[in-house]
Lab assay of single mutants.
Amino acid sequence: QVALSRTQVCGILREELFQGDAFHQSDTHIFIIMGASGDLAKKKIYPTIWWLFRDGLLPENTFIVGYARSRLTVADIRKQSEPFFKATPEEKLKLEDFFARNSYVAGQYDDAASYQRLNSHMNALHLGSQANRLFYLALPPTVYEAVTKNIHESCMSQIGWNRIIVEKPFGRDLQSSDRLSNHISSLFREDQIYRIDHYLGKEMVQNLMVLRFANRIFGPIWNRDNIACVILTFKEPFGTEGRGGYFDEFGIIRDVMQNHLLQMLCLVAMEKPASTNSDDVRDEKVKVLKCISEVQANNVVLGQYVGNPDGEGEATKGYLDDPTVPRGSTTATFAAVVLYVENERWDGVPFILRCGKALNERKAEVRLQFHDVAGDIFHQQCKRNELVIRVQPNEAVYTKMMTKKPGMFFNPEESELDLTYGNRYKNVKLPDAYERLILDVFCGSQMHFVRSDELREAWRIFTPLLHQIELEKPKPIPYIYGSRGPTEADELMKRVGFQYEGTYKWVNPHKL
C-alpha cells in the first residue's frame, strides 16, 4: 500500500502544474464570482478556492472578487462561507491571508454602469489591468444573457486571457439551449467557454479513460460480442427537503440524466481518441451522441416518491408533501431510460440510465454486464461477469466473477477481482471535483468540460421526450421513500436483457 498525506498529494500536483506551459504561476489572475451571495458560491466555490489557495495550487498573485446585487462586505462573505471551509486552528494565518486577497463589488446584473465599476475595481488591483480574468457564473440561467453581454462589453482583460465558467442547466430543451449557446458564442470563442459538469471532475469518471485505453485486457472485450448491457446509475437517499420548488422546474431527467449520466455513457462508449488533447476527446464523445436516436417512450419509466409510513423524519414525507412543490405536480423524481448506440461496436446493446431521489442508498456507478459463458459445464450455477466502476461513495473498480467454492467439488461461487483505489492508495485525500475543474480552467484544459456541439446532441436525444411529458403530463409511478424505485423499472431492465441475480454482496474494501 502507498500512504500519501494531503501535503504529498498537493506537492505532486504542484510539480505537475508548474512543469506545464499552460499554468502561468507568476502571472496575476483575477477570479470573479458572479452571484457571490448565492448558495453555490457559499457552499462550493469559495470553499474550493480556499482549498486550492491553502494547498498552494493557485497562481501566487490571485485575487478573488465577488459580485452580486446584495450590498455585502468581505466580512459578510466570510461569515456565510467559512463554515464550509473546514479550516483547522493551525490554518488561521493562512485564512487571514486568503481573505486579504478577497474583495466585493455590489451591482445589478443588467446595468452597464455596475460592470464599469467592477472593471475599475479590477484595474485598481495590483497589475489588475493586465491580469488573466476568470469569470464564474454562479447564477440562474435567466440572467446569463445580460451578464455575459455586460462582461464582454465592460470587463474583459485587454492583455491577459479571459475565460468564463457556465453552470448547468444549459437551457431547458434543445431550442433554449441553442439560443443560449448562440448568444454566448457570439461574445466569446469556444476556447474561452467552460460549461461545467462537476461529474466530469470526479476521480473515477476520469479513471474510465485510463482503464479503457491503457489496459490491453479490456480492449478486445469492450464491444457487443461480449457486453450484454451497460447500466449507469445515480441514486440519492434523500428527497427534495424543502427545495422542491427549484427541482420541480427541471425534474430528474434535466437535473441528472441528460448531463451526468449521458457524459458517463460517452466515456464508456467512445472510441479511442487520437490523443488526450481536449478536442480529440470531445470529438469522440460527440460521435457517440450522434449514434444515439431520440428516446422512445416505451423505453422510459418515470416515478415519484411517496412517504414511507414506517419511516422516520423526512422519510415519512412524499414529494408532494414538500411545501415548495406545486400542488398535484407530476414532475418525476425517478427515471429509467434505455438508449442504444447504433454503431458497429455497440449495435443492440442497451445502455440503461437510472437516477432518482429518496432511494435506498447513495450511489453513482457504471456497471457493464457481460454475456453468459458459452457451453456451460457447471449446471447453470454460473452468474454473469460484471465490471463495476463505483464513482461514489467509496470509489472502487471491481470485476464480479466466478471462482471455485472451497471444498471437494467443482462448485462455482461469485467473488470479485478488486482493482480499488483504496487498497493501493491508503487514506489518500484526493482533490474534489470542483478543485480539479477550476484548476483545469486556470490551465486552459477543456477536456472535462462540455463543448457546444456535445451539448446540442445531448438535448436532441431528450427534448422530444421532455416535450411529450410536458404536454401529456403522465402521472409518475409512486414508489416508497427509501425503496429501490418503481418495480416497473426493474421490469424494463429485465425486458431489454439485464439479469439481476441478487445473490452477490459487494464487500467494501475500504472497511476491511
Rank of each mutant, 00 (worst) to 15 (best):
C355V: 10
P464Y: 07
R384P: 10
L439K: 10
D322M: 06
T324M: 12
T463A: 06
V366H: 00
D283C: 04
V450Y: 02
V441S: 08
A332Q: 09
K363Q: 03
G482F: 04
L465V: 12
E365C: 06
L353G: 05
K505G: 14
Y319V: 05
L368K: 04
F410T: 13
G422F: 11
D432Q: 11
T420Q: 09
P478S: 14
M447G: 03
I377E: 08
E386Y: 00
D432F: 09
E271T: 05
P326L: 07
A315I: 11
Q468L: 13
V325T: 11
H448N: 14
M493Q: 15
E395R: 05
Q499G: 13
Y340M: 14
Q446A: 07
K357A: 01
R254P: 05
G497H: 12
L262K: 05
K429Q: 13
M401V: 14
Y425V: 07
V338W: 06
S483F: 08
H371E: 08
Q381E: 15
D283P: 01
P393A: 08
L417M: 10
L439Y: 09
Y398D: 03
D279A: 10
N298D: 15
H379V: 14
V338F: 07
V373I: 09
C443P: 06
G318Q: 05
M401E: 01
R456W: 08
G303M: 03
Y434M: 01
H371S: 12
E472A: 14
A364T: 15
L419K: 06
M264E: 00
P474C: 14
L465S: 08
W459D: 01
E342M: 11
C355S: 08
N508W: 08
K404E: 01
I477L: 15
A336G: 10
K426W: 09
P486D: 05
E416L: 00
P323S: 13
Y500L: 06
F334V: 02
G497D: 13
D372N: 11
P486S: 00
L261A: 10
P476Y: 00
G318R: 06
L492H: 06
K473V: 11
V337R: 00
Y481L: 08
L368T: 03
V341A: 06
V281T: 09
V268H: 00
W459A: 02
L387T: 05
S415L: 01
P486I: 06
L430F: 10
P393I: 03
A315T: 12
E395Q: 09
S275C: 08
A297K: 15
Q258L: 05
K404M: 05
R367V: 04
F409W: 12
V341D: 00
S275K: 04
A364V: 11
Q258G: 06
E386S: 06
T330Q: 14
K272D: 08
I469E: 09
P323F: 06
C266I: 05
N259G: 00
E501V: 09
M447L: 12
N343P: 03
L267N: 05
E284A: 09
F410H: 08
V268P: 05
W346P: 06
S329Y: 01
D372G: 11
P474K: 14
N308L: 08
M402N: 15
K494V: 12
H448T: 06
